[in-house]
């Protein structure tokens, strides 16, 4: 067991390092930093007619979560396996005595650490700027940090697992991921009716509705209980990871360009 965990740890560490290599790490940091920088920019204007904390919550819900976080998870998540399959370096880990499921778990772990390195500070900084640069000094965070932390972590885990599987399944993972993110997760929740229950973001936003009593995140109101809001993305991620392990265990992994 200890050896198995050790090997998964090696994969996780290497996956984490690989996620940050070159300009990609810088690019992803800038994507995540867009949110706190926007809040900072608004705060710097010292406008008295803007509740900066409320603005930061709104930006989190409407920009950070469905766009910035999703984009970062898409780029990192898809590349976990797709990059190695396309350049045929996947042959190295699969030709070792490491169980393929351990590859999935290890790579996913490395991804989560790498993604959260960018996303958690960005989310918390945005809220901090919103509270402390607010023209009204009496505004408090009132549990907002916990909400943002839980939501950011759950969103990363859920979206990341999905994009990992997408990267395993198809060369078109980026395109399909973009369509999923910017159509299914963005527009479907705006439609009336039960369809929004099939989106992850519906549950992720509901975390705020359960934990925060004021501000835009609190005004979402709890359409679902906290247990459901947390449980659905977690269960989704777990199921997707299990499917990924089962798929990889039986998949042939070769570049689709031509026979070897």
């Amino acid at each position: 067991m200890r050896e198995a965990l050790g090997r998964i740890g090696v994969v996780a560490y290497t996956s984490w390092r690989g996620s940050l290599v070159g300009r990609r790490g810088l690019g992803l940091a800038l994507v995540a930093a867009t949110y706190p920088l926007l809040v900072l920019a608004i705060g710097a204007s010292r406008r008295t007619d803007i509740d900066l904390l409320a603005a930061s919550e709104l930006l989190y819900s409407a920009l950070f979560l469905p766009v910035l976080l999703l984009l970062l998870c898409l780029v990192l998540g898809v590349s976990l396996f797709r990059g190695e399959i396309e350049d045929d370096t996947i042959v190295y880990p699969v030709s070792r005595s490491l169980p393929r499921a351990s590859l999935v778990v290890g790579k996913f772990t490395g991804f989560v650490v790498a993604a959260l390195m960018f996303l958690v500070p960005a989310a918390l900084l945005g809220a901090a700027f919103g509270a402390y640069l607010n023209v009204d000094p009496g505004v408090r965070l009132e549990g907002l940090e916990a909400t943002l932390l839980v939501t950011t972590v759950l969103a990363t885990v859920a979206y990341g697992a999905f994009f990992l599987l997408l990267g395993l399944l198809t060369r078109q993972a980026l395109v399909i991921g973009l369509i999923y993110g910017f159509f299914w997760e963005t527009f479907v929740p705006l439609l009336p009716g039960p369809l929004q229950d099939l989106t992850l973001i519906h549950y992720l936003r509901a975390i705020g509705g359960n934990l925060v009593t004021t501000g835009p995140l609190g005004e979402i109101g709890p359409p679902v209980s906290l247990a459901t809001a947390v449980g659905v993305p977690l269960t989704f991620a777990l199921l997707v990871l299990v499917v990924s392990c089962l798929y990889l265990g039986r998949a042939e992994l070769r570049p689709e360009a031509s026979p070897a």
Binding site: R7, V10, G18, D87, D88, T89, R96, L98, A260
Partner: peptide
């Protein structure tokens, strides 16, 4: 018990050669 050297030239470009070999050895436990 098997060592495989593939035909293609692709390796993990961002690693050093030594790191590459160490990584794969650690995958073997």
């Amino acid at each position: 018990e098997i060592g495989y050297c593939p035909e293609g030239p692709a390796v993990y470009d961002w690693m050093t050669g030594w790191e590459f070999v160490v990584y794969l050895l650690r995958l073997d436990g």
